[in-house]
Nucleic acid binder design. Structure first.
Lengths: 243, 243
DNA sequence: TAGTGGTCTAGACCACTTC
DNA sequence: AAGTGGTCTAGACCACTAA
């Protein structure tokens, strides 16, 4: 049942991932590329594309001349930092079933770091949406989004404040979020943030300070997020790079 | 002058990066893949491989049907987290010329997190190497490596304690470091670490807790590192993933 | 020496953007 | 309609690992 869309590569990738999770293989060894290609009736290139993606996700590793192997360690990686697109999905990948609570949604003049990040003038207004993500009523992360009000194409957005930001920007600003430039910052939580997250003030936490851009590199949104380190910890595989 | 090794793809990649940094292009637009392929006398596949790597580094982005463009934001990324291999190189990429000071190198029984990470028994000995990386006498990061002593193939390693760990493991343990599994942890610096880094106790910092594995997934080393956030901040590009 | 992954080619067709 | 990047094929040869 080989069809277009999802792409062949995606189907092959899903198939191999399935094999990894169910079979386990002997010695964690995955069949040779040529064999996979023959079995699935696709070209070796397609198989290699699929394997390359699995490799970059940390699920497998390859040794020239030896073979392709399952990377048990890599399976601990729930999500690659650079692949995080919505926090809803991030939390789901970590095994949560998050609910979202909008703590605040109001317009105010941009503070100075926001104005600088978004290229605004002093006094320009931004819509501030503060969302808390919970798992079973327990706070996991807090995120504050700031969107220039001049992007808003209407006023009837109240129902969608809980939506993922890229969706909100699409629906109510007619802008398409393309990527984030993100800084990873260690902080001691201030009293306000700590209380919203249900931890003691001063608790160390990871904070993301990010700017979301559209395809033309125009900044659309500035986001600041804080995570409960005891509930959500970021892991990654570091390898010798080809660069 | 097209030769093997470095690979064609690497040469093409370097060539395009050169173009990006010097020319700047109009509208940040990069010539079409077919044109690059013709100019350089290589196949489009090779050009695409090179562009894909540049894209994953954040230097460019591609829009189907529209073209390939320079990503000015992405050029701010000094090094991808997942491509960090030695801290020497990381610091160089950030514009430092780091010097290394070995603060300690001694054998001791493994503490319990180390023993667990490396699969050791209670009381097994590890060689602990504590290194401080400085820029102009100013501490930037501190790293502690723990290597099981039973890996050591000799006793004359004293001169190489300052070497990058993968080199030390190669030369004195005959083991080849393949990858790290790394956790990103927010901490408030304890008095000892803070004083070594020259900051106040309690200063928030990023800590990496990592296990280094060889090709067979055998753990070789556990490392704990702390960074001066005011001198070295991690940035990354987050994109919608193909996964 | 046999078998594996790594690199590269030449070409086809598709999906999408732009004019 | 023209031109771009995205997907896929079939095949060649190389570099490396393992028996």
């Amino acid at each position: 049942m080989i069809t277009r869309n999802p792409s062949l590569t995606d189907q092959v990738k899903a198939h191999i991932k399935e094999l990894i999770l169910t079979d386990g293989f002997e010695d964690a060894r995955i069949p040779p590329e040529t064999e996979l290609a023959a079995d699935l009736g696709v070209s070796r290139t397609t198989v290699r594309d699929a394997l390359s993606r699995l490799q970059s996700e940390g699920a497998i590793y390859r040794r020239q001349g030896a073979g392709t192997f399952v990377n048990q360690q890599g399976l601990q990686i729930k999500s690659r930092l650079e692949d995080i697109w919505s926090y809803e999905k991030l939390l789901e990948d970590h095994g949560f079933e998050p609910s979202v609570r909008v703590l605040a949604a109001s317009k105010a003049p941009a503070d100075s770091p926001t104005a600088e990040a978004l290229g605004l003038n002093d006094g320009d207004m931004v819509l501030i949406i503060e969302k808390l993500f919970l798992e079973d009523e327990k706070p996991v992360m807090l995120t504050i989004n700031r969107i220039p009000t001049h992007f808003l194409s209407g006023t009837d957005y109240a129902d969608d404040e809980a939506a993922p930001i890229y969706e909100f920007l699409q629906d109510h600003c007619d802008r398409s979020l393309s990527y984030y430039l993100s800084e990873i910052i260690p902080v001691a939580l201030d009293a306000d943030t700590a209380s919203k997250l249900g931890v003691d003030p001063g608790t160390p936490a990871i904070s993301f300070d990010e700017i979301g851009f559209d395809q033309s590199n125009e900044p659309l949104v500035r986001a600041t997020s804080h995570f409960r380190d005891d509930l959500l910890r970021f892991r990654l595989i570091r390898k010798r790079s080809g660069a």
